[in-house]
Every structure is written in C-alpha cells, then in structure tokens.
Amino acid sequence: MRSVSEMIEQHLKQIMQQSPDGVIEIQRNDLADQFNCVPSQINYVISTRFTLEKGYIVESKRGGGGYVRIQKVVLHSHGTVLDFIFQNVGNHIDQTTSEGLLYQLEEGGFVTAREAALMKAAVAREVLALKLPLRDEIRARMLKAMMVCLLSK
C-alpha cells in the first residue's frame, strides 16, 4: 500500500501533466482535506519531492487566499539553462541544491559526467572552507561562471 505522501505526490504530478504550461496552483488546506491529512503533510511532500534539484520551482504565498505554485522546469537549450540558472541560483546556493542542479544538467545532457564531477568538486564545502553565508555566495558565483563558460557555445 502506498503512503499518503506518495499519493499526494502522484496526484500533484498528474495535475501537472494535464496543465498546458506545466504549472499548477494549489491550496494547502483544500488538498489536505482531499487526502484527509494535516496541511503540514502537504508542506512535507512539496518540500521534499518538488525541489529545484528534482526539476521543480515552488513558490508559496501564505495566509488567507494563499497558494502553492509548482512549476516543472523544462530545459530545451543552452540558453534556457543559463536563464534558469541565473533566475534560480540567485546570490547564494547551498551544496545540496548545487549538487541537485548539476545532476539535472548532467541528466539533461547539458554537461558531461566529467564536467559535472569537476564542478561538484570545485564547489564542495570542503574546498570552499569559508563560513556561511559567504561559502554559499562564492559557490553561486562559481557555478554561474562555470555554466557561462560551458554553455555559451
């Protein structure tokens, strides 16, 4: 038997597949009622299964009339990859997110396994032996610079 989290994930993915633009907006409370669970379970599913490293952008607005917008990232060309990186990496990125991003780029064929391994090694916390938040800021700058170099062909 599948867990409630798995059912919620599958439900959201099915709705997303039916969406012409790959974007859905949900109400946490409505979805919690539908699955007979607490809203925090919805938050858990979204925060663990719809992450940037798994190819999703999540935007959330809390309060009355609040929503969660989930967008599947589709990268078609080097230009869209660069746009995506500059829009979503921002001024800082943690190691886990950077590794997920590199995994997505490798899976999409935008970088080779060797290139991904080199970038992963270069931005590792052991190499960037700096205190936070400086370490995450340097990591973001390095990733952006490497992506521009590799993808501006």
Rank of each mutant, 00 (worst) to 15 (best):
E6F: 11
I8M: 01
H11W: 07
H11F: 15
L12M: 06
K13S: 06
K13P: 04
Q14G: 11
I15D: 05
M16V: 03
P20R: 09
P20F: 08
V23Q: 10
I26T: 05
I26Y: 03
I26D: 05
Q27C: 15
R28E: 09
D30Q: 15
F35G: 02
P39G: 05
P39F: 05
T51W: 01
E53T: 11
E53W: 08
G55Q: 05
I57K: 14
S60R: 13
K61P: 02
R62N: 08
G63D: 05
G64N: 12
G65V: 06
G65W: 05
Y67D: 01
V73A: 13
V73C: 08
V74I: 12
L75T: 06
L75I: 12
L75V: 10
H78N: 15
H78P: 12
G79N: 12
G79K: 14
V81F: 00
V81Y: 02
F84P: 01
Q87W: 04
V89F: 02
I93Q: 03
Q95N: 10
T96L: 14
T97E: 10
E106P: 02
E106A: 10
E107G: 10
E107I: 10
G108Q: 04
G108K: 04
G109R: 04
F110V: 04
V111S: 01
T112F: 05
R114F: 13
R114W: 11
R114H: 13
E115R: 08
E115W: 03
E115M: 11
A116M: 09
L118K: 15
M119D: 01
A121T: 09
A121I: 05
A121S: 14
V123Q: 04
R125S: 14
E126W: 02
V127P: 03
E137P: 01
I138N: 01
I138P: 00
R141K: 11
M142S: 07
K144N: 05
K144M: 12
A145Q: 09
A145I: 04
M146V: 08
C149M: 12
S152Q: 13
S152D: 14
K153I: 11
